[in-house]
Write a protein that binds this DNA or RNA. Sequence first.
RNA 1: GGCGACGUGGCCGAGUGGUUAGGCAGCGGACUGCAAAUCCGUGUACCCCAGUUCGAUCCUGGGCGUCGCCUCCA
Length: 480
Amino acid sequence: MLRVFNTLSNTKEEFKPINENKVNMYVCGVTVYDFCHVGHARSSGVFDIIRRYLLHKGYDVTFVKNFTDIDDKIIKRSNEANIPWTELTAKFMDEHNADMDSLNILRPTHTPKATDYIKQMIEMCETLINKGFAYESNGDIYYRVQKFEEYGKLSHRKLEDMMAGARIEVNDNKENPFDFVLWKAAKPGEPSWTSPWGEGRPGWHIECSVMSEDILGLPFDIHGGGKDLVFPHHENEIAQSEAACGCMFSKYWIHNGFVNVNQEKMSKSLGNFFTIRDVLKEFDAEIVRYFLLTTHYRSSLDFSQDHLLEAEKSLNRIYTMLDELNRFNPGKKGVDVTAEAEKMVETFMQKFEAAMDDDFNTPEALAAMFEVIRETNTLLASKPNKIGFPALLKAVETVFCVIKSVLGVTKYSPEEWFRINLSIPEDELNAKIQARTDAKKNKDFATADNIRNELLEVGIELQDTIDGTIYRASKIRTFS
RNA sequence: GGCGACGUGGCCGAGUGGUUAGGCAGCGGACUGCAAAUCCGUGUACCCCAGUUCGAUCCUGGGCGUCGCCUCCA
């Protein structure tokens, strides 16, 4: 039984989709005016894994992630760069997609853009005005927060409490300082659309209300995003959508924790962010993806080079096992490990699903995977015979098929993984390995060790096995 | 000021009212020409104080500390 933590109830709840086998989910995407940073990677990674696990459970998942392609920051940035805002947003949508692809994040089923839904946003404004939930003021349209009795139910705060500690700016156009804008009148020179209230453009929150309803219908199953969106963004979405339709908006609300740098939230405003692009120059995308799995999605995740290096070592351990498995030649002698292999898969599946069923506990799921790795290494050391080895191979394939499809890591073959960072031509390397093998044959261990040390300095590690010498290349890093 | 989260062994990080998380690093052993990889063994861990309990790291109350939301933000 899958249990998910619902921000709305502040508890883990049994997950029961509204329609049998169908899951509709909507995740808030990015405002496209800059490159994505690691915080975006986390959010995207988290919801990708949630989606993949739901698929694994057999659900038919429709996954919507929007692009916010009109807002103050976009206008500002396009003015600064002196390029049309549409060009700016088109560029960063492409860049966003490239980053997400490299992180092995499945493309959403739908990726609506706010500006494609202007008409529907105007209609929702009209509906809300007609129902008394919104009002016009100098060409702006505001949501009348006090009219929506349940306002605050997601973020668990009361309007009165918020008013008491209010530290928000006074705006003469508003009836109440917590009223938020649905539609704003255009200033001269700004991009704008024609509306019943004159030229203007949409406020931020309304796009998600409109696009989710248009594509998924109401209510839908899961609405997600970063923790920082709980208030005001998601609270406001609920107010708009539930007031407009008179029904439930989303059944489950899922929010991911932040990425921290030195105990502080990584954010644009603090300026302590790393773009995905920059991190990928130093670390393979799979390392970044694995790193995201090492902490539960609701906790904050501390971003540092050390943690990425640890993630890399963990992946090395995984690929080492897979490599040794691939290279193993079973003999006539040996043991039949069929029973152990079958038991191993069974135990893994049980532990893996229990972990993921418990609010997508990926660190515990990884622990189950590492148990398979140790067990497999042990079984390999016991020399499986021609009957036992295929059973072991099949068992490991079954396990890693799940790891690949749900967690989205170990997409490489071991050969690829240990070759990504090869720093010298392979011919040259093979020649050196041959020279060392010759030296070893002549008991000239000094020469052999020199060659080995020389290669180690360029990131290539040699290992002697029964079937000859193999190599593993790792990235030479300039820092630390 | 209002609301909330967190504090686990050298580091990271799950979890539980009494019985092994897992990874990284360290130490001892096996293996190796030596290594590496791997396996085996190895750690008086749960911020402080009080309470509930036969028993609390896990429950309750208080304290200290860190962080987040309340303004754009994944």
